[in-house]
Write a protein that binds this DNA or RNA. Structure first.
Length: 526
DNA sequence: ATAGGGTTAG
């Protein structure tokens, strides 16, 4: 840590004591400063060089200060970088850009935006680097729109810059405005792999998985190169859709083209197999990965958890800690979920109450949600309700919904009603809650309450989300809704379903109809 | 010096 200070003292004594020997050509202090700057990691080292430089500044002064600002920003010492910046005679576009970037990556978004304003006041011209950085400092849709108009109005020569445009595509999609992303994307004169990937990722992040995959297919038709980032997004779409064939195709592509399975792509692949129901394949991929990140571990642990492989999930958790990977809050959610799905109640509680001490992770509302589920599914409804009552974070709809769900499983109508009261406040238009409550009444034979519930739903005009499922055939995703007749071969499909139902009946399969809403005919329930 | 990536409780 003090190496650099020692080096300054031993290697350039002439500038510490200026009266001694004259500076030789081979020992020019400004070059030494620059060389030493590259090796700085701690703030104190930067300060030493800075102080040393100020005592005997070499010309031009701004050259070293610029380098110093850049190094400080890259080491996230943003406040000190600003102090150095203030000492400059004529800050350049580069320095302003660097500071805007520094503020944006350090989370001081307003400071970043203010610095851009300062830049324009001082009549320093923005360049092609300025706006991608400025967009990183934007924290609201409207701010990004302003930046977009700034580009169009005050820097029209940048409007067709691929970096600025890709930044806009990605900015708009992260604020949920895919139509804006798409309009920028469609107007781009040149699109490369990065811009296509940004647009695909935009769709995937906004849960428009089918559109994301469609764009990926188009990207391939147009012969654009793809890389591991593209494929990670595509696999995420496959995971959410359950598009197993497409996911397998990506895996084959990776193998055939020797795409490097970096931790991100590996994680996406594991998650795809796991969400498609192939937990063994997920484990296989996990084993073969050369590098794993905390997300990789989280994905396999969470996958094992929901597949009911609690023992294996706990083993992975131990293995993870032995491999010096620090668990994060998502890891804990995965492990708690493993305990829930395998009935390890005590183990789960132990983890919950020690997570702060052992891992420095403060329980979030999601962890409390897991705890309620853990106790509730095990039938310990009283304790689950106690947690909801005393938890330090205001319980949200998920927490009350969890409680409602476990009340259904264990037939506690009274507590279910309590949960429902809160859910009417917190999630008034979540139709699933009303259906669940109604089913709980039905299972308990309280048909009058079921009818009351139904009137309530009708009065509040709550729309039931249509049941929807999808299936992939020859790489095309087909969506089906309840009562759907949009498919060109829907008549054939329904007659096939009838046939299947008959054959299931013959085979002794009994559909679970006890909890179907209301007093429908036996036939409809089935 | 710039743009794009994976995992998260009912």
């Amino acid at each position: 840590m003090n190496n650099i200070a020692i080096q300054i003292k031993t290697r350039i004594p002439n500038s510490i004591k200026p009266s001694e020997t004259p500076v030789s050509r081979a020992n020019r202090p400004e070059l030494l400063h620059l060389r030493l700057l590259k090796r700085c990691t701690h703030l104190i080292q930067f300060k030493q060089i800075h102080t040393h430089f100020l005592k005997k500044p070499s010309d031009p002064k701004d050259v070293l200060l610029t380098k110093l600002v850049e190094s400080l920003v890259n080491s996230t010492y943003i406040d000190y970088a600003y102090r150095v910046f203030k000492q400059m005679d004529e800050p350049t576009t580069f320095v302003f850009n660097t500071l805007v970037r520094g503020y944006a990556i350090s989370g001081f978004f307003n400071e970043g935006i203010n610095l851009y304003i300062e830049m324009r006041y001082q009549e320093v011209e923005p360049d092609k680097f300025t706006y991608p950085f400025l967009l990183k400092a934007c924290t609201a849709f409207n701010q990004g729109k302003v930046v977009h108009s700034l580009i169009l109005k005050s820097a029209p020569f940048l409007a067709s810059n691929i970096y600025c445009q890709t930044s806009l595509v990605s900015f708009y999609s992260s604020y949920g405005h895919l139509e804006y992303s798409r309009s920028v994307f469609d107007r781009m004169p040149d699109r490369n792999m990065v811009s296509w990937t940004a647009m695909i990722t935009g769709y995937v992040k906004q849960k428009e998985y089918k559109e994301g995959l469609a764009l990926f297919h188009q990207m391939q038709i147009e012969g654009i190169k793809i890389n591991e980032m593209t494929l990670a997004s595509v696999l995420s779409a496959c995971a959410h859709l359950g598009a197993y064939e497409m996911g397998k195709w990506v895996h084959t592509y990776i193998d055939r083209n020797r795409v490097f399975l970096n931790p991100t792509l590996g994680t996406a692949l594991i998650d795809m197999y796991s969400k498609c129901g192939y937990i063994n394949k997920a484990s296989q991929v996990f084993e073969t990965l050369p590098l794993r990140s905390v997300c990789t571990w989280n994905s396999i642990i969470g996958g094992l958890a929901v597949h009911g492989c609690g023992e294996e999930a706990l083993q992975r958790f131990n293995q993870m800690q032995k491999s010096d990977t620090i668990p994060d809050e998502i890891t804990v959610i995965g492990v708690l979920s493993a305990c829930t799905h395998s009935g390890f109640v005590e183990k789960g509680m132990e983890l919950f109450y020690s997570m702060q001490r052992d891992y420095g992770i403060e329980p979030s509302i999601k962890h409390y949600g897991c705890l309620v589920d853990l106790l509730g599914r095990a039938g310990r409804l009283k304790e689950a309700y106690e947690i909801v009552k005393i938890m330090p974070i205001k319980p949200n709809g998920v927490v009350w919904g969890t409680l409602l769900d476990v009340c259904g499983t264990h037939g506690n109508v009274e507590l279910a009603e309590t949960a429902m009261k809160w859910l009417i406040e917190l999630e008034p238009s979540n139709d699933g809650n009303y259906v669940l409550m109604s089913n709980i009444y039905a299972a308990n034979g309280q048909w009058d309450k079921v009818a009351e519930m139904r009137r309530f739903i009708k009065n509040k005009s709550i729309l039931k989300t249509p049941g929807c499922s999808s299936i992939e055939v020859n790489n095309v995703m087909h969506e089906f809704m309840v009562g759907d007749s949009r498919h060109p071969r829907s008549k054939e499909i329904y007659s096939m379903l009838d046939d299947l139902a008959k054959r299931l009946k013959v085979a002794g399969y009994v559909p679970k109809i006890s909890q179907v809403l209301l007093d429908a005919t036996e036939e409809d329930k089935r």
